[in-house]
């Protein structure tokens, strides 16, 4: 099945040529990027949350994944990260078909994620939250006894700006601290790609700047990032490229400048279609 789809899409790309990025993206094949999503569709009963969405994420880029509330961003995320399987379509990671793989297997492949609503473990300290992600997925392991785990976890906490809050519990952290903790846990899984879900929601302008700097640094160190947000504030300054979706379909794709001036995007955001 996937081979015919491949053939179809490559045909498309040759016929439409390279005139727009949008067409090129629809033509994504398994090897066109680190993460390739092809004809992804997710239906919940009669509701189509994601409708035939295709895009590719390039190595070491920061891709913005933008759309108004309810556009299907989180559903796309959840289909990619194995929270639930897509109804149709294929997800490729590094050229391999990983559609419907479980969340922890995706993490093991090198694709970490953060949660928009934050999912820390409230029963333990910040450093122990991060240390859990350093734990090997084995029933019997002695890694905890060697004591290196804590040192590594401390290092990661410092990296994400939680160095002075190591022994606090997540309940004591401010909103931005919880976001940093999400990033810390993602980093502790030693990822190549992080899907960051709505990092800027609820942050002050200064915090948006700090988190943007952190994400830019991570990219400079070789990570690939996909950042989801419904709010373009802060995001357009950070990203290299953006995809805008609404009602589960892509309406625009391009550089931040192109997105800013795109009429369809303005319509979607300002409710212009009414």
């Amino acid at each position: 099945m996937s081979t015919t789809t491949d053939a179809d899409t490559s045909d498309d790309s040759t016929s439409t040529g390279t005139e727009t990025g949008l067409a090129a993206e629809t033509a994504a094949g398994p090897d066109d990027g680190v993460l390739v999503v092809e004809h992804l569709t997710k239906r919940f009963g009669g509701l189509t949350a994601v409708d035939d969405l295709s895009f590719a994420v390039q190595e070491q880029e920061i891709l913005g994944f933008i759309g108004p509330n309810g556009a299907g961003k989180s559903t796309t995320f959840n289909c990619i990260t194995g929270t639930y399987p897509p109804t149709e379509g294929t997800v490729y990671y590094r050229g391999e078909d990983v559609t419907g793989e479980s969340a922890y297997d995706m993490v093991k492949r090198g694709m970490a994620r953060t949660f928009q609503s934050f999912a820390p473990l409230y029963d333990r300290t910040v450093v122990k939250n991060v240390a859990l992600a350093l734990t090997p997925d084995k029933l019997f392991s002695l890694s905890g006894l060697r004591g290196g785990t804590r040192d590594r976890a401390v290092e990661i906490c410092e990296r994400v700006g939680l160095g002075d809050r190591l022994d606090q519990t997540p309940g004591e952290l401010p909103h931005a601290g919880l976001l940093r903790l999400e990033l810390g846990r993602a980093l502790a899984t030693d990822p190549e790609l992080i899907l960051v879900d709505e990092p800027f929601a609820g942050l002050s302008n200064q915090e948006v700047g700090e988190v943007s700097d952190l994400l830019a640094d991570l990219r400079a160190e070789g990570l690939t990032l996909v950042v989801v947000d419904h709010n373009m504030r802060g995001l357009l300054d950070l990203i290299d490229r953006a995809i805008v979706i609404t009602f589960g379909s892509m309406i625009a794709e391009g550089t931040p400048e192109e997105i800013r001036t795109d009429e369809q995007v303005q319509e979607a955001y300002l409710g212009g279609e009414l």
């Binding site: 922890y104 473990l121 859990l132 734990t135 997925d137 993602a186």
Partner: peptide, 14 residues
Amino acid sequence: SEDESAVAASGLNP
């Protein structure tokens, strides 16, 4: 017992 999705996101099979 705290949060299974956090465990999965840590790369561990709950």
